[in-house]
Design a protein around this nucleic acid. Sequence first.
RNA 1: GAGGCUGUAGCUCAGUAGGUUAGAGCAUCAGAUUGUGGUUCUGAGGGUCGAGGGUUCGAAACCCUUCAGCCUCCCCA
Length: 465
Amino acid sequence: MSKPSIPQGTRDFSPEVVRKRQYILNTLRNIFECYGFQPLETPAMENLTTLTGKYGEEGDRLIFKILNNGLHDITAEDKKQKLQDEWTKVTSKAYSSPVVTERALRYDLTIPFARYVVMNQNELAFPFRRYQMQPVWRADRPQKGRYREFWQCDADVVGSTSLINEAELLCIYQKAFNELTIPVKIKLNSRKLLAAIAELCGAPEQMMNITIALDKLDKVGWTGVVKELQERGISEDGIFKIEQVIKVTGDNNTKLAAFADMMQHSATGIGGINEISKTLAYYRTLADAQWTGVIEVDISLARGLNYYTGVIVEVVCNSEKVEMGSIGGGGRYDDLTGLFGLKGLSGVGVSFGIDRIYDVLEQLEAFPQQLASGADVLVLNFGGENENYALSVLRQLRDAGIAAEVYPDAAKFDKQMKYANKRKFTYVLLPGDEEREKGLISVKNFVTGVQQMVSMAEAMTLIRG
RNA sequence: GAGGCUGUAGCUCAGUAGGUUAGAGCAUCAGAUUGUGGUUCUGAGGGUCGAGGGUUCGAAACCCUUCAGCCUCCCCA
């Protein structure tokens, strides 16, 4: 018998870990609901054609495909021949065929969301605000902090171009990370500014290349970016212009003023600057003075996904104690639903990287203490008549809304106690002969070790603290 | 897709230059102890040394092949 295992890049979540993850999800869910977002869930699998071509060439490669069922059952000669032909292609090059695979696992939550909006466009009330927290799958090579199955947690608004939406999403980030007690920096940029930089270089068609190179500024520094830009064929003059823009420092208003000066001849650039300033203005009106996160205009922020068209954001942990990439990101995409035939619908959304948020909370030791335990109370089982007494005690506890469990076997005393210890119960109740005869119950506080024999009513008061 | 590292008990790992019957800690189970857990003590179970082949009188160790896991790059969350 071989040892059992789970697929590469997947994880089991132990009870303690699930509780911590649920703490994160519940915190976010409450905030989303408070901001008027509605829950949405979509299937784990989509039609492959829904997903292909949406994430770029690299993305297509990373989609988990599902082999069609019943391939061996095909009897019609012409279909069988078709399958053979397609199979040969599939095994010889990067190629997908609906004859072999027509379904695939969800790659992210945004494309299924767009698909849902298009399918239900006549029923939905726009602007439609939804949040979605579900696992996604990528056939990527797993490594530290990267998995083949992981959860995404998105909130999007479609059907409105107002920058109030952008400002609200900034608020959601602020509120979420304040409640989770994670110090953050929220970087803000606009794809329009990146486009304007490409214009400044006299190479507007090079925007993607410039964007990809700039995105690495944090990682490889300016000299690394220069190298990357040269490799991607950007002129020396262009690189000099980019440097002028990148080297701008100061607070957000100073930066925006400087950009406005440099980009005064670019309608795109001015547009980008305006949307950032308006977003920030709305944000200031909506924001809570308690929030501690820093919002910083960062023109080197690029974001990989190519469907973004307007404001883009990214959240990083702002603590020396933590070494971590982005823990959230998002932006505006002007025509996502256009991919599925519904034109002119603009959307803006943010995503929380909950696996990374989990790691950050661990490193900061910022999970609330009381998450650790499950049921508070264990009722011991002394067998015989005491067993029934134990069950009646158990029922009274649950009727009173106290989470409790009974040890189901009349096992040796120390075995039951060891179980209680391992499970970290706060209280252990001992319904034995004496207790039963007197109609009382012994309550042992398992943290302090103090034990007392009291009435059920008093016991419940004790347990409730 | 490219590269690097590691596979020995449930877990973390020792294992000298290739040499008797492969060890330790933790965990598990039993007992000390069937009305008092954590600590302690005693004992027990648990291994095709990732798999296959080769070299050798002899392989956990050396060679080849293969599989798996981890990490880095690319890309991404």
